[in-house]
Design a protein around this nucleic acid. Structure first.
Lengths: 143, 143
DNA sequence: GTAGTTGCAAATCATTTGCAGTAAT
DNA sequence: ATTACTGCAAATGATTTGCAACTAC
């Protein structure tokens, strides 16, 4: 039962990279934060408890997390790259407001069943899926 | 039977924007180019025949095309925003093989109905959607 | 000890914006 | 006439990089 932290350490070791305090702290903060944070947002969160961790280190670490498969890079409306932990990626979908950029996560068993059926119809074994529904949220409809 | 050009003109008119030579040229080039071009690539393509069209105009026009629903912004590995024409009639989805990269396009009325229902449940007006199912195709399963 | 890492500041690159002149309504 | 648009150059903002000091191995 390897934890995410363990697999990160292993990824680092097997790739000739070093397990540093900063990398462990950043991973921990990433895992305990809401999903879809940008590197900047993560940096700001870290700053209160770890004012010594630099901007660039957060960027560099997030890149490693994406390469290692622990996180996925995502792009929504805005210009920033956002990160999402991969464990949760399998069964949740996104509803995104074109206007204010709000992101709502949802799950739906019926949708998922149809995806499985579709994959079967095409003789695919399904590994993961990405669904984004774009539109305008209630709040923005009234502006 | 409104053409894409017509609907662009209409979008411009109904939004207090002007139908200019540059906008028409950019749309035409966009439609007759391979998909997934970035604004810069489009600008470079235009430069040979229209050296007078500026960089910023291409960016501004692509933004309007995205807002009008004629194009979608996409992000792949690199840092650039790429544009894809929206085939508005049918919503097509993608089944992608993790191993050989094969892409199968499909449509599914039941899936689409569920998307509409989901949007309604969250008080969203749906504009467009993106679905990618990843897995391994039959051919690759036997390797 | 050696090789990778950090934090800072400066650099880069895509994209946006201010502005004065120009074109569409 | 009025208001939006264009092209240029300069500005912005996210991300990357060079470098000297540092830390994991």
């Amino acid at each position: 039962m390897a934890s995410v932290k363990d697999s990160f350490r292993e990824y680092l070791s097997t790739h000739g990279l070093k397990v540093t305090r900063q990398r462990e702290i950043i991973l921990e903060e990433f895992l305990s934060s809401p999903s879809h944070l940008s590197a900047e947002e993560l940096y700001l969160r870290l700053r209160s408890n770890h004012p010594n961790i630099g901007y660039a280190t957060v960027y560099r670490t997030m890149k490693i997390l994406a390469e290692s498969g622990i996180a996925s890079e995502r792009h929504f409306g805005d210009r920033q790259t956002r990160y999402e932990p991969n464990i949760s990626e399998e069964h949740h979908y996104h509803l995104i407001c074109n206007s204010c950029g709000k992101i709502i996560e949802f799950e739906d068993a019926k949708i998922e069943a149809l995806f499985l059926q579709t994959a079967k119809d095409h003789d695919f074994t399904l590994s993961h899926q990405r669904l984004e529904l774009y539109g305008v949220c209630v709040d923005c409809q009234h502006k």
